[in-house]
């Protein structure tokens, strides 16, 4: 499926085009900055298909900036520049002619703070579905129910689908945003500290959800919670001062990291 011409696709089963190398997204020599400050320096990094990759590192190390470069959310930031490539299924998302709408349909995103739109709960779930013309009106109800069930919100909101999402708890709002992101059937889902404003129980629920989504979906999650990275991710990347220090299996990164900086960070000697 090319980025320039979004093909019709089933809502329920994202078509995973495996090119055999198992890499969903890949950064090649990626440098990125704003004005005269360089934020990311010469990154090379693979995101394996169908796995969960955690991005960890001290504050200001460039995790968010990197995450946002995977669906080109940095483009609009003032004085943004970049060098190098980011590949999705082998094609560069920064090449001219790439349609941002098509890209973001394939690479979805969930933000740190829940950000439901000012429309009813059902309309929120359908926002992306309608924007991309993914399904006809007759399917709307089924999509809303399926997505809300998927994130475990259906029982709580089925009786008030037409009312405001801002009466939901913060955790419920975040789950609604997750349902909204899943409804467009993305192949890759980017999450920026998605549970930092949630209580432990909801966090656990979200983590279980992410693990269950993983084989069909490629997930990249930024987190400050090292325990969370250990619990949910298959692979973990350690960022430090805009560089990728180490990306390897989560167990290995936490138990026998190669680099002293990584060792310091995961053992809590550097924050």
């Amino acid at each position: 499926m090319s980025l320039s011409s979004p093909a019709a696709r089933s809502v329920d089963s994202p078509v995973v085009v495996d090119r055999g190398d198992g890499v969903a997204m890949r950064a090649r020599g990626l440098s990125l900055g704003f004005g005269s400050t360089a934020v990311l320096a010469d990154l090379d990094l693979d995101i394996h298909r169908g796995t969960i990759t955690a991005l960890i590192g001290p504050t200001g190390s460039g995790k968010t900036t990197f995450l946002r470069s995977l669906n080109r959310m940095n483009d609009k930031v003032a004085k943004h520049w970049h060098r190098g490539d980011v590949l999705l299924d082998g094609s560069n998302i920064y090449s001219p002619g790439v349609q941002l709408m098509a890209l973001r349909r394939r690479v979805g995103m969930l933000f740190q703070r829940p950000n439901p739109f000012p429309m009813s709960i059902a309309e929120n779930v359908l926002a992306g579905v309608k924007a991309h013309g993914i399904a006809g009106k007759q399917h709307y109800r089924a999509i809303v129910e399926a997505r809300l069930r998927e994130v475990g919100l259906w029982e709580a909101v089925s009786s008030r689908l037409g009312s405001s999402p801002f009466n939901l708890s913060g955790g419920q709002q975040q789950l609604l945003c997750l349902a909204r992101a899943l409804a467009t059937g993305p192949e890759v889902l980017l999450l920026d500290e998605p549970t930092s404003s949630l209580d432990p129980i909801t966090t656990e629920h979200v983590e279980a959800l992410l693990r269950s989504l993983a084989p069909a979906l490629t997930i990249v999650i930024v987190t400050h919670n090292l325990a969370q990275a250990r619990r949910v991710s298959n692979r973990t990347a350690f960022f430090y001062q805009g560089r990728l220090v180490e990306l390897t299996d989560t167990t290995k990164l936490f138990e026998s990291p190669e680099h002293p900086e990584t060792a310091n960070y995961v053992s809590g000697r550097m924050g």
């Binding site: 959310m73 098509a102 973001r104 933000f111 703070r113 739109f117 926002a127 992306g128 924007a131 992101a181």
Partner: peptide, 13 residues
């Protein structure tokens, strides 16, 4: 801006 970014990230025109 969270509204605008949310819409953008969802691929809305």
């Amino acid at each position: 801006t969270t509204y605008r970014e949310g819409a953008e990230a969802l691929g809305m025109s």
